[in-house]
Design a protein around this nucleic acid. Structure first.
Lengths: 239, 239
DNA sequence: TGAAAATATGACGAATCGTCACGCTTTGAC
DNA sequence: GTCAAAGCGTGACGATTCGTCATATTTTCA
């Protein structure tokens, strides 16, 4: 009896079809132009069918986030294979995050919105749970590098600081930086270095503060940053 | 001929009335429950009158942000009067930001959303411009402290790092931290220190990385953090 | 006091949401 | 091959909310 599994597979394929349609609409016309009717029309299904997959509009936005989070996860996984010291690895992850926001600017917008009650109070609990799961996976990638650094003796956490605290700090810094940089042109009268340097500078200083060795005084990380960009930049996005 | 100015005053008062009504609705029923009809009903005006003030729903959301940004600015101004070394001042501003997110959690949600195209592509240009202006004011508060630190010799920027780079870094770190902390319960399986310690730890390490003196090894900032909380915590929010 | 200007109103058309009763397709037993 | 039952897709529909605008009301000032 593989009818069941075939049905399931077709269902998932169609879900992806809807999600991609939503992405196309948002990319070409903006989020506010996204309607359930348009998705239905574009995919040549009826609206009722779309609602078989998503409980509401916010739910499909979350599904889109979820999909793009998968791509982010892939980038992070690849970053983990980067050859280098622990600090270079964490920089590589930061680069991955940055690349993600460049490849999926619209989805990054949504990801920000999805941290907000605005969206969450409407989306389906199931979808939110799945987003949390991917969040965890992503966090684990960062945790792994921190643990590696501790094991290698590159890093010693002081004053009851927890691994997750540093993990959260790195995530916050990158997230904040990317959100604000993403909105850079909205903030007038700001005399800033280019995005790449900005990211490296802030990470460098934060990590120096944590005494994550080798310190920037002992090793220059500009080269590593550039190489990480190239390394991940050539990564194929899985279809 | 002071009819004109009286009219203007009445107009502004009514705008505030609408904004506060919007805030009340959002606080008690959530953003998605906010409708123009409800605002009209609550304030006992007709919907058309509401539309004399705001071009659309997103515009009133931005107006609400703008209002709360004013409160944030007040907190920052008060933080600048804090007696202490330059590093303590910057911590005090961080505390102000944190207090802001606690006093206006709903508005902070909106502020996040307002950095996103979702909202900005609909709100009126005038309102957006005014938001940018307040953003600049806020940035200036941070800039001022950085400049002070440089003048006093507490801080020396290296490697072509600009004042605005550090300013942006501090802002990003705090913003990211607060956004993610705001959504802390959405992120499961995270073993974190309490919010206050988290904020102080991250700022401390970032500032140490920048070699902003006195370093945390030379001076303990826990006391300053606590005092800043009390100092700003007792600040009256201007009606 | 009254005409003109300014302002407020809420009924209205348009857009979109999410539902659900109906009809078509697939399935699997005979 | 046939048929009943189950599963699936459909799009018309009611409900909600948006934003507008012709009309009604109020204010101004000669």
């Amino acid at each position: 009896m593989n009818t069941q599994s075939r049905r399931q597979r077709e269902f998932e394929q169609r879900e992806l079809l809807f999600v991609n349609a939503a992405r196309d609409i948002i990319r070409s016309e903006g989020v506010s132009a996204l309607t359930m009717d348009k998705i239905a029309e574009l995919t040549e299904y009826a609206k009722g069918t779309v609602y078989k997959h998503f409980t509401c509009k916010e739910d499909i936005l979350c599904a889109l986030c979820l999909d793009s989070l998968g791509h982010m996860y892939d980038l992070f996984q690849r970053a983990l294979t980067w050859e280098g010291c622990s600090r270079e690895k964490i920089i590589c992850i930061g680069v991955g995050y940055q690349l993600y926001t460049r490849r999926f600017p619209e989805e990054f917008d949504l990801l920000i919105a999805a941290r907000t009650n605005n969206i969450r109070e409407k989306a389906s609990p199931e979808r939110l749970e799945r987003m949390d799961q991917v969040d965890s996976l992503v966090m684990n990638a960062i945790r792994a590098v921190i643990q590696l650094a501790i094991d290698k003796g590159d890093l010693t956490l002081k004053n009851n600081v927890l691994i997750d605290d540093l993990c959260f700090g790195l995530w916050s810094m990158s997230f904040g930086l990317l959100v604000l940089d993403h909105a850079r042109d909205m903030i007038s009268g700001l005399q800033l270095s280019p995005s790449d340097e900005l990211m490296l500078t802030q990470m460098t200083n934060l990590l120096d503060g944590y005494q994550w060795h080798p310190l920037s005084s002992e090793q220059d990380y500009h080269g590593a940053y550039q190489r990480a960009l190239e390394y991940l930049g050539t990564t194929q996005v899985k279809s």
